[in-house]
């Protein structure tokens, strides 16, 4: 007998059986756990009070240290909404149907768009020619609607913000250029577009990086005397342009005021004196928008507050 075999034999003897698993316990009664979340009546009081101040998912309880099934499904639904917004592409013809001159960057595919910001900052040759042929020259303000990181936001929130902003600029006596809509566009694409038409100010409205359960937010970037080579320090911006942040009507007034100030002061970005912009900077308290319940199976209604 080898030493190893002796050791193994002794170990088996100590375990008392050839089956190494411990004996089975008696079967328990398994009660169904209580519903935990997205049922407002069951929410703890504290979480209910907190919900007036934040959209963070609080008071959702736990199973062991993990989430209840209901929470997992809500989370997965919100994740899917965000991923769909990122993956969405502007359909062919959408720009023309909504009254925009269609333009495209040098990006050829969605993956390339994500990986090559440099290509998303320059116009494709055909688009450059179209812009030269068809766009009005020397406007005060050239507006650009674009997909950015959420074509969903561009399509759902874009036209309303564009219209409001064009009207606000016109209301200040500023001449607005030909409406253009750019596909696979990064922020700096406004430089080449603005430079080509000879605009005094360019403003690009583009879909911003979606958050969980959202994909409707737009950001706006403004630059004075747009030309290729301008940097972020030359720009002013507003983000979170959506119902939970700054709504279109309010954003349009502020953006038009910024454009007017850029023309008056002859600069933008770090050089712009924001104290001399005649639009309200601060805004009052806005209750957070209630997070929508996304999953409803059987009889429970979807879309209601949690």
């Amino acid at each position: 007998m080898s030493v190893t075999r002796d050791l193994v034999a002794a170990l088996r003897a100590r375990l008392g059986a050839s089956d190494p698993a411990p004996p089975r316990v008696a079967l328990p009664t398994v009660p169904a756990p209580p519903a935990r979340v997205y049922a407002p009546r069951r929410e703890p009081l504290r979480a209910g009070a907190a919900a007036r101040h934040t959209t963070a998912l609080l008071g959702i309880g736990h199973v062991g240290t993990r989430y209840a099934t209901d929470v997992v499904l809500q989370f997965q639904a919100e994740l899917a909404v965000a991923h769909e917004a990122v993956a969405a592409e502007l359909p062919d013809g959408w720009a023309e149907e909504h009254g925009f001159l269609p333009l495209a960057s040098r990006v050829a595919s969605h993956r390339e768009f994500l990986l090559r910001p440099d290509l998303g900052r320059r116009l494709a040759p055909a688009s450059l020619q179209r812009l030269r042929d068809q766009a009005a020259r020397d406007p005060d303000v050239q507006l650009v609607l674009a997909d950015g990181l959420s074509a969903t936001a561009c399509m759902t929130s874009g036209p309303a913000l564009y219209e409001a902003l064009a009207a606000a600029c016109a209301g200040r006596g500023l001449r607005v250029g030909t409406p253009v809509c750019a596909r696979f566009a990064r922020v700096w694409l406004e430089d080449e577009i603005g430079q080509e038409v000879g605009a005094r100010v360019a403003i690009i409205l583009l879909g911003e990086r979606p958050g969980l359960g959202t994909g409707d937010g737009l950001s706006a970037y403004l630059v004075h005397r747009p030309q290729v080579g301008k940097t972020d320090g030359d720009r002013n911006m507003m983000s979170n342009l959506h119902a939970r942040g700054t709504p279109p009507a309010e954003a349009a007034l502020r953006l038009a005021a910024l454009a007017a100030a850029m023309i008056e002061q002859g600069t933008s970005g770090v050089g712009l004196d924001l104290d001399r912009v005649d639009a309200p900077v601060e805004r009052g308290y806005r209750a957070p928008q209630v997070r929508q319940r996304l999953v409803a199976c059987g009889g429970a209604p979807a879309g209601g507050p949690r």
């Binding site: 907190a50 101040h53 609080l58 957070p288």
Partner: peptide, 15 residues
């Protein structure tokens, strides 16, 4: 918190 609402920040912190 998207607007620095202190009550919202504290609610999240407590949890």
């Amino acid at each position: 918190h998207p607007t620095d609402d202190v009550e919202g920040i504290l609610a999240s912190m407590r949890e």
